[in-house]
Simulated scan of single mutants.
Amino acid sequence: MIFRRIKNYDAGSELSTHDLEAELRGLLKPRVGITGSLGRGNYGDELFVRVYEHWLGQWADLTLLTALHRPWYFRELRTTQVDIMDAVVLGGGDLLCPYRTQIDPDFINPMYLRRPVHVAGIGVENDLPETDPSVVEKWAEFLTHPNVRSISTRDLGSAGWITKHIRPKVTVVAHADLVCALPLPPVERSEGRPILGIVTRYARDPKDYRLLEEIAASYIEKGWRVRHIIGGIEGHGKRDFENGEELKIEGKETLYTKQLDEITRALGECSLLLSMKLHTTIVATMYGVPTVCVNPVVKIRAFMAAIGREELVVEPTDPRLIKILEDGVPDVPMDKVDKLRAQAVGYLKQLSQRIWDDYRNTSAARRHILPETMVWTD
Rank of each mutant, 00 (worst) to 15 (best):
M334D: 07
R40F: 09
E253W: 06
G91M: 07
D45C: 12
G288P: 12
D378A: 05
R360Y: 00
R225P: 00
F3R: 09
R70A: 15
V298K: 13
Y43C: 04
S352V: 08
S158Y: 04
T80P: 00
L325R: 14
E250P: 06
M286W: 03
I166P: 03
T79F: 01
R225F: 05
L56G: 14
L156C: 09
W356S: 00
A216G: 15
G44T: 06
S190C: 15
A67C: 09
K336L: 10
L128D: 06
R50H: 06
P105F: 08
L143A: 10
T171G: 05
R4T: 02
M374C: 05
R360N: 00
L321R: 07
Q343L: 05
I215Y: 01
M276I: 10
I198Y: 03
L128F: 02
S150V: 02
T254S: 08
G197S: 01
R50F: 03
G121A: 11
D318P: 06
I300D: 03
I151N: 13
H165E: 09
V292Y: 07
G192L: 02
D155L: 13
R189Y: 07
K323Y: 01
Q58M: 06
V82Q: 07
Y219A: 15
W224I: 10
T163A: 14
T317P: 01
S16L: 08
H175R: 15
N42I: 07
C97M: 09
E310D: 10
P129F: 10
H175C: 11
E326P: 00
I300H: 00
K323C: 07
V226A: 05
D86Y: 01
D338E: 14
M85A: 04
G308M: 03
N361T: 00
G308Y: 02
K299M: 05
D261Q: 15
C180E: 14
G197N: 02
G328R: 10
A344S: 09
P316Q: 01
Y347F: 06
H279A: 10
A174K: 01
G192I: 03
K258D: 04
L351A: 12
R154E: 08
T144G: 04
R40Y: 04
S275Y: 08
R341F: 05
K349I: 11
P371G: 12
L340Q: 12
K258P: 03
Y209K: 15
D94C: 11
A365R: 15
V88M: 14
R227C: 04
L340V: 11
G232N: 09
R204V: 11
L113Y: 11
L312V: 12
P30A: 11
